[in-house]
Design a protein around this nucleic acid. Structure first.
Lengths: 336, 336
DNA sequence: CTGAAAGCGCTAACAG
DNA sequence: CTGTTAGCGCTTTCAG
């Protein structure tokens, strides 16, 4: 590999001079500068990253820790983060945990060797012990999507309860009375908040929560399928469905198709999470859209600020509002 | 940050001893080892990554350069690569180029500073100049999905022609005679190969290619929408559709829905690329599935081998076969 | 304006 | 078995 020494030799100057020319635009005589720059170009020289970061105490890299890149939710977050990162001259490293705290721990460990300058994380569990061990001043990080228990730190999250309320309220406002709910894991914050929203929206209109209308779908495709099937077999079938995430929606959709249920005629449907294909589905799906790209770029901005600020400013907790996107599956009167 | 010096001081040994204990399982007296390890644990010490990679000439990182993580095709590749990487004790850095050669160049430049030990790339253009500048012995790389012109190097690609032939042949075998084709960009290898496959399959059955049945959809959603619309407006409407990628399929599906065309009754449909939602669509989509996860993990394996082999073995070019997944949209007789 | 030298945190000879 | 020392590639004082 070409090193700074090679450049120095070829250009007939010292390594110190090369370094100065490269790092300080207004250093050295014009003649010297040009001489050095010419050799740099000719030899296609690129400073060694490890050596630089050792001195600068800056790697120019951040990590994004999520459960799985294949989830369109995270994919969008990743893109938002990467765009923000590039704008700030950072690169992004990707870490999939599959929601396994052990995998998460292994990544966290590695990151503490200063592979990166900071990281964004959607935690694998609500347990805050792993993160509490990390010195935020040395290795700043920002939580996204989920928070930890008893642990206040920088975070960008979504108001899940609000999203669920909007969904169920919309269904109710369009005349539906028996709204089935395919819930997510109740040992997660997002799962519980969406459940809360469902209950709150019913309460608003004085409708009692019926336990049999609520099925847990574990946030998975097969869970959604099973839950939808169970709901359809109820003696008194629901006339609407609120589904707590995109994976379960796919499963539920299959169950509804198999049972030849007409959407929205027989059952109206609103799903949490907007995905690319939702608007191309027949009928196009009414959804609660989370501002995922924004979540990624905002989390990035907060992190980059931490990385440059002289002394720690106060903790930033940003709560984003999800948005109801009315399409056809909800049978809204707006569609005529 | 805790350094090796801190450990040495606390444990009452030299830094060399700490290094040995940490890197060579059978070094030092048991007593010494335990003393050191205890301090390491107590201080939550993690060796500095930059310092290590400077000496070892190994960063333990590789990069994945693709056009966009949001494309499910690449997302699956990314996951395959990351799993392979972790198995080999590597981490993955993500680079989106948006198919912009300038962005690609900027990443390539940075990588040459030895941020990573090697990389996997789906090239932004067929022009091989950027890659030819890179010394494969110093910074190995493997191409995926697309190749470059006049540039033989390690690559894992898919037989696109074969995939297209399988799709169109299947349509023909099920009695369709006027197969419309929404083609991808013809200035890309994948676009041209799929076109070739379309023509070859027709030729097999002695059917002449009708130019009016072929529309370019640029591999985009809106392009697919426009192309499908144009095809539907033909005086003699096609009775089948072969679409060259997932994005265009979404667009085409919308056009078909708007025109209230029954699938597969009026128009049978086969699409290139399998995606998560394809099987949940109504009707479930018959597709050509590319082995994307495998592509990622295989490319990884080739790279990791390069990173460990003493001297360069011969160039590896792997051509994967895509697979026809018969569901309902093709109106196959297999479905009864 | 330029160069010599120290040092970032770590590992690998080499000596003791 | 353990410690001393040199040096990875680079930047930054500090002299000249």
């Amino acid at each position: 590999m070409t090193t700074i020494k090679d450049i120095a030799r070829e250009a007939g100057v010292s390594v110190a001079m090369v370094s100065k020319v490269l790092n300080h635009p207004d250093c050295g005589r014009t003649e010297t500068r040009e001489k050095v720059l010419a050799v740099v170009k000719r030899l296609n020289y690129q400073p060694n990253h490890a050596a630089k970061s050792m001195i600068n105490k800056r790697t120019g890299m951040i990590a994004l820790i999520i459960s799985d890149v294949r989830n369109p939710f995270f994919t969008e977050v990743a893109r938002g983060l990467e765009d923000a990162a590039n704008k700030n001259n950072y690169r992004v490293m990707l870490c999939n945990t599959d929601n396994d705290p052990l995998k998460q721990q292994s990544y966290l460990q590695a990151l503490q060797g200063r592979i990166v300058d900071g990281f964004i994380i959607s935690v694998a569990s609500e347990d805050s012990r792993q993160l509490k061990k990390i010195n935020r001043a040395e290795l700043p990080f920002v939580l996204i999507d989920r928070e930890c228990q008893n642990f206040r730190t920088d975070a960008v999250i979504v108001d899940n309860r609000d999203g669920a309320v909007k969904a169920v309220r919309h269904l109710l406002n369009n005349g539906r009375r028996r709204v089935g709910f395919i819930a997510g894991k109740q040992n997660t914050q997002t799962g519980r908040e969406r459940m809360q929203g469902y209950c709150d929206a019913l309460a608003e209109q004085g409708i009692a929560v019926e336990q049999q209308l609520i099925k847990e779908g574990h946030f998975t495709i097969s869970g959604g399928y099973q839950a939808a099937k169970a709901l359809l077999e109820l003696p008194e079938c629901p006339d609407a469905l609120f589904i707590a995430n995109n994976a379960m929606t796919m499963g539920a959709l299959r169950a509804l198709t198999e049972a030849r249920v007409r959407i929205p005629k027989k059952i109206a449907l609103v799903s949490f999470d907007d995905v690319e294909w939702a608007e191309f589905f027949t009928p196009p799906l009414t959804v609660i859209r989370q501002p995922t790209y924004t979540m990624g770029s905002l989390a990035g901005e907060i992190l980059f600020q931490r990385l440059t600020e002289a002394k720690q400013s106060e903790i930033k907790e940003i709560v984003l509002r999800p948005e109801l996107i009315v399409r056809k599956s909800c049978g809204s009167s707006l569609n005529g």
